[in-house]
Design a protein around this nucleic acid. Structure first.
Lengths: 160, 160
DNA sequence: GGAGCTATACTTAGTGA
DNA sequence: TTCACTAAGTATAGCTC
């Protein structure tokens, strides 16, 4: 009907862009599926939705894509530069976190000791359990964060 | 020239499969690039090479793909656990706030009506403007709180 | 093996319901 | 909004070199 030649540039019209996005997304996913079947090749694709950030198009699915990505990471190990950086970054964070945790533990210990001493002086005996919830909670939060970072690092190591 | 209809199945001929793989791979990457430009969307694709496991086709490149993947991981995780709860919590607060506001408005209206009637009776005319500052202020405070909560929710949605 | 060609199949922009 | 339609543009199977 009309001219249909499209130049390769951002489509400024909101509705036109959305229409194009949906059609092309479907087309691409179809083609990827065809390729994986025709050639029996693992492949994946991830495309964000510009109109709904919650919805990301993924082929073949979340898990399948992650498998392909992991495999890719494994084989692409030679290209170490980036992961090494990422790894050293995480190691740095772990070190800092551990230091912070140590400081907290030290502080807590001092405070506990002080309280124990006071208690000892007042009651003339040392209690078995002394609960300082706030301090321990802080401790736990830091520890939990560290665990998360460590898990990330472990995943990274496994995938390298 | 000859039949070109291709059924969606593994191509057994080695050479034909390789030819098809190379042509289609190029086509797909071209289409993904077009989509990312036309719609300004982050997207990536990873396709293994069936003939050379060391060589994996990646768009836009290793780092770009990893960025897309990380973003996808983060947003996918966030949604499931954290934001859903936070969001429903905020929605609950908005609903309750709206109900409270409605009750206040209803009360105000009744009071206004009562005062207008009194005024009408005393002066034998209906005033155009009747200011009841205290009630209106209360109204505004509630509304302001609601706005703040709604803004939070909007931000949350945008960041997803 | 890949490069180039061409006829055909497929994709999709624009449109209207 | 999303569907279906269709013309025009694009991708590619099969071929030759």
């Amino acid at each position: 009907m009309t001219r249909r030649k499209v130049k390769l540039a951002f489509i400024s019209s909101n509705s036109a862009r959305k229409a194009s996005y949906n059609k092309r997304k479907r087309g691409i996913i179809k083609k990827v599926r065809e390729l994986t079947v025709l050639c029996d090749v693992p492949g994946c694709i991830i495309i964000s939705n510009p109109f709904n950030p919650d919805e990301t198009a993924v082929f073949p699915d979340r898990e399948g894509a992650m498998q392909v990505i992991e495999r890719y990471r494994n084989t692409a190990m030679k290209d170490e530069s980036k992961n090494v950086n990422q790894q050293s970054f995480l190691l740095q964070r772990i070190t800092k976190g551990r230091e912070k945790l140590e400081r907290l533990r030290h502080d807590n210990h001092e405070k506990e000791t002080g309280i124990r001493m006071l208690d000892c002086i007042q009651n003339n005996k040392l209690p078995d359990n002394l609960s300082i919830p706030d301090l321990h909670d802080l401790d736990k939060i830091v520890e939990k964060n560290l665990k998360e970072i460590e898990n990330k690092l472990v995943q990274l190591n496994l995938s390298n």
